[in-house]
Design a protein around this nucleic acid. Sequence first.
DNA 1: CGGTGGACCTGCTGGC
DNA 2: TGCCAGCAGGTCCACC
Length: 273
Amino acid sequence: MPELPEVETVCRSLRARLRGQKIARVEVRERRLRYPVSRQLSFRLEGRTILEVRRRGKYILVALEGDQVWISHLGMSGKLIYVDASRPRENHDHIIVTLSDGHELRYHDPRRFGLSLVVSEAAIRSVPQLKHLGPEPFDPAFSASYLYAVLRKSRRRVRDLLIDQKVAAGLGNIYANEVLFHAGIRPTTRAWRLGKRQATTIAEFTPLVLEEAIRRRGTSFSDFRDGEDRKGRFQNHLRVYDREGEPCANCSSKIKRVALGNRSAFYCPTCQV
DNA sequence: CGGTGGACCTGCTGGC
DNA sequence: TGCCAGCAGGTCCACC
């Protein structure tokens, strides 16, 4: 569910709420996430003060005093929400963090595809899930020449390449499809067939689309909520994703859907070649 | 190494 | 109304 814009929205909405707070207590009610939650999670978090909240790809990093970082991934259906402690607990509230101001931070994830672990700052580089992440789309390293070099040597479909976290950290199926619409390229196109100009267009549109989605606080179909449990609004501005049969905003052709691997790709048959 | 398909989960929707 | 298949924003692994 949550791709870069959604994770960034969660981080921004939590940042001011969490900074400076002390973690009073951590209750793990369900350890069976994508990876089992360590029995030492509570011990490593309790008593520490939160310094900052940051993001890497689709991972949320909460830095704590004492050189510890609490890393969360929301999988497909996860939420990390800051709520009043009096609010009733819900099914699938797997981790409850009690804060010094009387609020709780709740990790909620029906499908349990997420992750939650604590490491030292120095160990972030060696966390298996993080160490192969590619450049952030807002980083200068995500340049036209970088992307062209990656595209030209791959026989994969361009949509598959763009959602590979080694290529661009944080891009997922929604935004890969949206970027390709703006670039005028079909998601099914083999990457090596694209030229420098097309690589440049993709490299330029990627941060623009993501920035626009962040401005609208992410895409909420059913699950996604920000750190205060509010929906995003970008679902109303999608050009192709989940719009099969609807008219293209540019040319009114019907948007098409194709299955690529196990997941859907969407495109305008007229605007995307 | 690259590509494909399935597995991990729950919940919602649409067709019959 | 009820049941069931299909599908969902992510990631990893086995297999060819």
